[in-house]
């Protein structure tokens, strides 16, 4: 049984694949079909009779798409960079502690991560308001950092733990100060966990809505793309929204496809497994 492929499986596969692919397909139809075939019909067709770039070109001319996307980009890189800046030393330090203590710290970080976003975002926005960080790239990034930091620390700690213990000792015996030990031996060896942590932080920030929405509220040109997109959706501008959604989704699809083999359940659910 495990070696033969049951033909029934293809029915399940096809059904699941259609279900998960369909929303992409809808986005594609809205973005690339002339409106007379989508919003012009009561029951839109499921296959494109005509393909056009008019929607996208017009949307780019009508609303500011690039501004929010650039902001999202800035925020995402700050979030990813700051995650590494805080997460690498933390991951190293925690990996060096005894398992009992380090597991407690990791568990603590993840429990914090379960705090409802909205509950925390509201007072944070008030702090940021008094620190003049509201509606700023840095403000949004600092708030989102909270979401990605525990997972980053966990992934990087796992990387450090997987290294042979004596490697670091060897480097010190070979005369390397701590900085060289990191730069030449340890960090090159955990570049994969570092990369995964960065990509996941980047993606989380790129997609994040709640914190961005509360810290940088609806001034479309001032906010990240999810907030701007929300704004266009509520103003009932579906074509512009679709263009926006499409442009913003392409990089994420590329990232997921490229890094698919690193997306593992035990990574993403954090310290809760094993």
């Amino acid at each position: 049984m495990p070696n033969k492929t049951n033909p029934l499986i293809y029915i399940v596969v096809l059904a699941l694949a259609l279900l998960f692919f369909y929303p992409f397909w809808v986005l594609f139809l809205i973005a690339f079909e002339p409106t007379k075939l989508t919003f012009g019909l009561i029951y839109p067709l499921q296959f494109p009779l005509e393909i056009t770039l008019t929607n996208i070109v017009n949307s780019f001319n009508q609303v500011d798409l690039l501004g929010p996307l650039m902001r999202s980009l800035e925020v995402a890189f700050i979030v990813g960079g700051l995650a590494l800046l805080l997460g690498i030393p933390a991951g190293y330090g925690i990996a060096k502690l005894t398992a009992r203590i380090s597991n407690k710290i990791i568990a603590f970080l993840f429990i914090i991560n379960m705090m409802p976003g909205l509950v925390i975002a509201i007072p944070i926005s008030l702090y940021f308001y008094s620190a003049h960080l509201e509606n700023t790239v840095l403000g949004v990034a600092l708030a989102q950092e909270l979401v990605v930091l525990p997972l980053t620390v966990f992934i990087i700690m796992g990387g450090f733990r997987s290294l042979p213990r004596d490697l670091e000792n060897q480097a010190r015996v070979d005369g390397a100060p701590l900085s060289s030990t990191f730069a030449r031996v340890l960090l090159p060896l955990i570049r994969v966990p570092i990369l995964i942590a960065f990509i996941l932080s980047w993606m989380t920030s790129w997609d994040e809505f709640t914190y961005a929405f509360i810290v940088a509220p609806i001034v479309p040109t001032d906010s990240t793309f999810p907030v701007a997109l929300y704004n266009y959706v509520t103003r009932d501008l579906p074509l512009q929204s679709a263009t926006f959604a499409l442009v913003a989704t392409v990089p994420v699809i590329v990232l997921v496809v490229v890094f698919q083999k690193y997306l593992k359940g035990q990574y993403l659910s954090g310290g809760l497994i094993g």
Partner: peptide, 20 residues
Amino acid sequence: LPPNKRNIAMVFQNYALYPN
């Protein structure tokens, strides 16, 4: 003294070669 100031060489049991 810290290890990098002692000028003592050591070969570890598992060799601890830098795999990168």
